[in-house]
């Protein structure tokens, strides 16, 4: 397996409020990672750093062997390529929908990639189908239900065909059928060779998907990185970490 992401001694503070401390983590291509930890342990912050939306206060971040800093991402071409390779589904689907229709929302990324309209349409239709939301195609994203918004948000990230898919608590607010649906989708994406990094509080849902669990503690540090199935068996540990 090749190393995709390498985080070394990463710390981050929001205006003197520490949110992440001394994080070391290696992400390998093609595997699925679960980010686990109590509220406020730094999961969302870590995902934002991995996505190049926040820059670490200290430490280094390498993506496919390239250092990611505010300087490297200021370069337009490099930044576009980086963002195409690693897609992000935000915790709050509301903030990431900004187009007048669902179709335009899904077409946004491939159009930015300068694909021709035929291919754009192809991708949009494929992703609508994959997320089972073909009927929403002409709707306005802001007037959808939360669960529908989430599906649209995921689809609109998939149309860029990222190699790495990062998701911040994607199960939040989904009904049981949608949860099962999402799990199946993630399994398919993983089978297609995508790397998945996903923060979650629903540990039992994902047994068949995740390879590795990354457990964060209340000190905003990584407590443990271990095989997922091994970690979720360890109830004492999970209780102590306040995630079960």
């Amino acid at each position: 397996m090749s190393t995709l992401i390498q985080l070394e001694d990463i710390s981050y503070s929001y205006d003197n409020h520490p949110a992440l401390s001394d994080v070391n983590l290696t992400i390998e291509a093609g595997k699925a990672y679960a980010l686990i930890g109590e509220n406020g342990s730094g999961k969302s912050t870590l995902l934002k750093i991995i996505n190049g939306l926040l820059y670490p206060s200290s430490g280094t971040y390498q993506f496919m062997g390239n250092k990611i800093t505010s300087k490297t991402l200021r370069h337009k071409q490099g930044s576009r390529q980086f963002h195409q390779r690693i897609g992000f589904v935000f915790q709050n689907p509301e903030v990431q929908l900004f187009s007048p229709t669902v179709y335009e929302e899904l077409a946004f990324a491939p159009r930015q990639m300068q694909l021709d309209e035929i291919e754009v349409k192809q991708r949009v239709m494929d992703c609508l189908k994959m997320l089972n939301i073909e009927h929403l195609i002409h709707r306005e994203p802001i007037y959808l239900s939360d669960g529908e918004k989430k599906r649209v948000a995921i689809a609109s990230v998939l149309t860029a065909n990222p190699q790495v898919l990062t998701l911040d608590e994607p199960l939040n607010g989904l009904d049981p059928r949608s949860k099962r649906f999402l799990l199946q989708l993630m399994l398919k994406l993983k089978a297609a060779g995508k790397t998945i990094i996903c923060s979650t509080h629903d540990l039992n849902y994902w047994k068949s998907l995740f390879d590795v669990a990354v457990v964060m503690n209340d000190q905003k540090k990584i407590e443990k990185v271990a095989p997922y199935n091994q970690i979720i068996e360890d109830e004492a540990f999970l209780t102590q970490m306040n995630v079960m």
């Binding site: 897609g87 903030v95 946004f108 930015q112």
Partner: peptide, 22 residues
């Protein structure tokens, strides 16, 4: 905060402050 996040989401999908017109 909301506006910032929307802006981030746009960046994540390849938007760099410029929008191509066809």
């Amino acid at each position: 905060h909301h506006t910032d996040q929307t802006w981030q989401a746009m960046q994540k999908r390849g938007f760099n402050g410029i929008y191509s017109v066809r």
